[in-house]
């Protein structure tokens, strides 16, 4: 068996999620190759070659791949992927965008967001916002899979010495173009990679009050997240959303502040190692999953917490 892992990257740096996806590939077992499709992405290919357990890196360096447009990249992956038994990508916004297009080009079903590998053809994945876990088996010749990073412990980024092979296939399909990008600039760690996450909900009352959480987060080296209710209310942007329809996180410590604990939100954070809930409503469902619950007014508790850290 040979497994093709699609690297997550920014053209200059390898995305951490790739290490979790390689871990899933290791659990399946077989020769692991990593495809780096990008533009002027040599540094990424070199980083990928050092990943523990990777035997070959395929580097497709082409201006058409600069912005990961699926119209250009999916045909490349489908072409290269024909020679593999499995094609894996991280269940990031990029992986989710591209891989189903690849699966359809190969005329195979995709298995989304696996959290465990039972065998080379059998996987576990959450459905209904994580309220049920399905075990699914695929008899497709090529198994196309996205991997939820929180289900697999990252492999070491160093230690491997894979060969790098340059690919010259692919180009611009000519039906889509990149216009622009607005990326949130933050010195805080990325939500899905942070060891500690502090999240606020509707109880925060407005966007300005999130500044209180930012200060706590900065003391803890944490990322700041939000519930869908807080996003819907316009307090904070959607890329901060933790939940079924937002980001799935599983940090060592998750602090939920003014979050009631809707199913939708729990789906995005209940695999965290330690959960703290601060809410003034002692009947809030969030307390049913919290290791440590504090029934208190967050506007008193959060400044106090900031001082105590």
């Amino acid at each position: 068996m040979a497994i093709l892992v699609i690297a997550e990257h920014t053209n200059v740096a390898l995305g951490a999620a790739t290490l979790n996806t390689v871990a899933a590939a290791k659990a399946i077992g077989g020769d692991i190759h990593v495809l780096v499709a990008g533009a002027e992405c040599a540094a990424v290919a070199e980083a990928a070659a050092k990943i523990d357990g990777v035997s070959k890196v395929l580097s497709a360096d082409n201006a058409a791949f600069a912005h990961q447009l699926p119209e250009n990249i999916a045909p490349l992956i489908a072409e290269v992927g024909k020679n593999y038994t499995h094609i894996l990508a991280s269940a990031t916004s990029n992986g989710k965008n591209i891989l189903p297009r690849v699966a359809a080009l190969l005329d195979v079903d995709q298995i989304s967001e696996i959290i465990a590998v039972e065998s080379a053809d059998t996987f576990k994945r959450p459905i209904y916002a994580g309220n049920a876990i399905a075990t699914v088996q695929s008899n497709a010749a090529i198994k196309v899979i996205t991997v939820r990073g929180t289900g697999f412990d990252a492999v070491a980024a160093e230690g491997g010495s894979a060969s790098i092979e340059a690919l010259t296939v692919g180009g611009d399909a000519g039906i889509s173009a990149f216009v622009g990008e607005e990326l949130a600039k933050s010195d805080r760690p990325e939500l899905t990679a942070a060891k500690i996450v502090v999240s606020g909900g509707r109880g925060m009352q407005n966007g300005d009050n999130f500044e209180m959480l930012n200060r706590v987060a900065d003391k803890l080296g944490a990322a700041v997240g939000a519930s869908r209710a807080a996003v819907d209310a316009g307090f904070v942007p959607n890329d901060m959303q933790v939940g079924q329809t937002g980001k799935i996180v599983a940090p060592d410590l998750y602090i939920a502040v003014g979050i009631s604990g809707a199913i939708q939100h729990l789906a995005g954070m209940k695999d965290s190692k330690v959960i703290v809930a601060i809410n003034k409503d002692e009947d809030a469902p969030i307390f049913q999953v919290a290791d440590y619950g504090l029934v208190a007014d967050l506007f008193e508790a959060i400044p106090e917490l900031e001082k105590a850290l």
Binding site: D109, Q137, K270, Q288, G293, V295
Partner: peptide, 20 residues
């Protein structure tokens, strides 16, 4: 389809901890 669902289970329950 090439995919078969073998079983569907409830997720591992997370028990409530303590109140501080």
């Amino acid at each position: 389809s090439t995919v078969t669902t073998l079983k569907v289970e409830a997720p591992a329950a997370r028990s409530a901890g303590i109140k501080v």
